[in-house]
Simulated assay, not measured.
Amino acid sequence: MSRPFAAARVLVSHRRSQGSDFVLAVFLAGIAGASNAGGFFALGQYTSHMTGYLSQIADNLVIGNLLVTATALLAIGAFTTGAAFSTFLVNWARHRMGRRQFALPLAVQGACLACFAFGGIFTTLPGRMFALACLCFIMGMQNATITKISGARIRTTHATGMITDVGIECGRALYRLVQPRRAVRPDGAKLRILLSLIGTYVVGGIVGALGYAVVGFYFSLPLAGLLLALALPTFGAAGGRMVPRPGHR
């Protein structure tokens, strides 16, 4: 068994460690950043900013812009559906496919991202709406997948939450300087993980912006290939049923 295949199987294995969670989260954060930036270049919309879409609904309902309101509702609905579908797949695969419970949703995300690569053929407004929904669906799937894998410790598209957590740790560090005798202290390991994820997300965004600006929708193909390369080796591994971990639902 070659090392790349072995590494991929470890990263999506049902047996988790903080190290494998971190590496997988960094990998997915880069893809999320690239996909999100690419969605803006290809569609003029960011596809993981649910807070922004909620604000759009409120603002545009007030001014009577029903098209923008409908677009925001579509994006939120697709993201939520993607998260729900990922959770369904994880639970279904846990009971039907044994150790492949995390590989399956990643493989489906890769397949969906490959389909998005051909979204450029949809030049009409309904077609572009479909492409937007597709990418939001993928973003929802990915965020739910890493949330399930890490036991809700890590999210890869929720930049607002990550940056908030960075601010909290910085506040703890400042308080520690002012009141060194108090028990309050920053979590250095958590801060390093957060900064790594944010940095990877930004780098992925730069790569995605450049890629989609040059080749358009087709830049989704290498991103899809990365997800499939991560997930598919697990399907060649020996099967077997497993006992679900407590707390996984």
Rank of each mutant, 00 (worst) to 15 (best):
A6Q: 13
Q18H: 10
S20D: 04
D21N: 09
L24W: 01
L28W: 12
A29V: 13
G30N: 03
I31V: 09
G33P: 15
Y46T: 07
Y46K: 09
L54G: 13
Q56Y: 14
D59Q: 15
I63L: 08
L66H: 06
L66V: 13
A70T: 11
L73N: 01
L74S: 01
L74H: 07
G77N: 11
T81R: 02
A84H: 03
R100Y: 03
P105M: 07
L106E: 12
G110D: 08
A117V: 10
A117T: 10
F118P: 05
G119Y: 02
I121D: 00
I121K: 01
C134D: 11
L135H: 02
F137Q: 09
M141E: 09
A144K: 03
T145W: 09
T147M: 05
T156I: 14
T164M: 02
V166Y: 03
R176A: 10
L177G: 00
R185M: 00
R185A: 15
L191V: 12
R192W: 04
Y201I: 11
G204R: 08
Y212N: 13
V214S: 09
G216D: 03
L221W: 15
P222T: 00
L227K: 08
L228Y: 12
T234A: 09
F235H: 14
A237T: 06
A238F: 14
V243I: 15
V243H: 11
P244I: 03
G247R: 01
G247A: 07
H248P: 01
